[in-house]
């Protein structure tokens, strides 16, 4: 076996690397034992709270994926049953619109006055959301009436002064904001004022 080539300083580069690794390992062990003994502070609690939020978001995404898988399986079953019914001509659907007409995601609520908007049980808890309110009659692409960033609760209360200026129909759009930058609209609901 031929000897390993030496570097310009006449040293064995692998031996040199091993020495550096050993020195680095010693410093690392020393540093680790020091940081493990370090006393925690309030700032660290904030960092840990951030980790907890990340875990909650990851679990929310996983639950949503499971829900979606379940929904898709159920939808596939419904389609299969519908196909069977149609093929046997037992119940003919005369107008596709009667069964397949689009429904707005999140539906519609009629309220006496804009006050507190709630969507409890409809969204996964412990996620971060952006809330946007739009004039329901404004053309697509119009700027929102209000935007609330980094919201984590499942309700939001509008102040009376702003509510008085809002039109009689508004659309609330809730977007889940992932820390990696991925955004997903999870609820879009129309609210109509009945007065």
């Amino acid at each position: 076996m031929s000897p390993r080539p030496l570097n310009p300083r006449g040293e064995d580069p692998l031996r040199e690397l091993e020495e550096k690794l050993a020195a680095c390992g010693e410093r690392t062990r020393e540093e680790l034992s020091e940081v493990e003994l370090q006393r925690g502070d309030a700032h660290e609690e904030e960092v840990l709270a951030g980790f907890r939020r990340q875990i909650a978001r990851a679990q929310t995404r996983e639950r949503r994926r499971s829900w979606l898988r379940g929904t898709l399986a159920a939808a596939a079953l419904v389609v299969a049953v519908l196909g069977l019914v149609l093929s046997t001509d037992a119940h003919r659907v005369t107008s596709p619109a009667q069964t397949l007409g689009p429904a707005p995601q999140g539906g519609e609520r009629v309220v006496p006055e804009y006050d507190e908007f709630t969507w409890e049980d409809e969204l996964a808890p412990a996620s971060w959301y952006r809330l946007e309110f739009f004039d329901a009659t404004a053309p697509e692409g119009s700027p929102p009436l209000a935007v609330i960033e980094d919201w984590e609760r499942s309700s939001w209360r509008v102040d009376a002064a702003s509510a008085a200026r809002w039109p009689d129909a508004v659309v609330l759009r809730v977007t889940e904001v992932d820390p990696s930058g991925i955004e997903e609209v999870v609820l879009e609901r129309r609210y109509s004022r009945s007065h």
Binding site: E31, L32, E34, V35, E36, Q38, G40, H43, E44, V47, L48, F51, R52, I55, Q59
Partner: peptide, 23 residues
């Protein structure tokens, strides 16, 4: 597996992250 007490223990062990980065 989503064990809550394990998650809390794990998070306490991860206190070293900000400390190591600072150092």
């Amino acid at each position: 597996g989503g064990d809550r007490s394990a998650v809390e223990t794990f998070l306490q062990r991860l206190r070293i992250i900000p400390r190591v980065l600072n150092r």
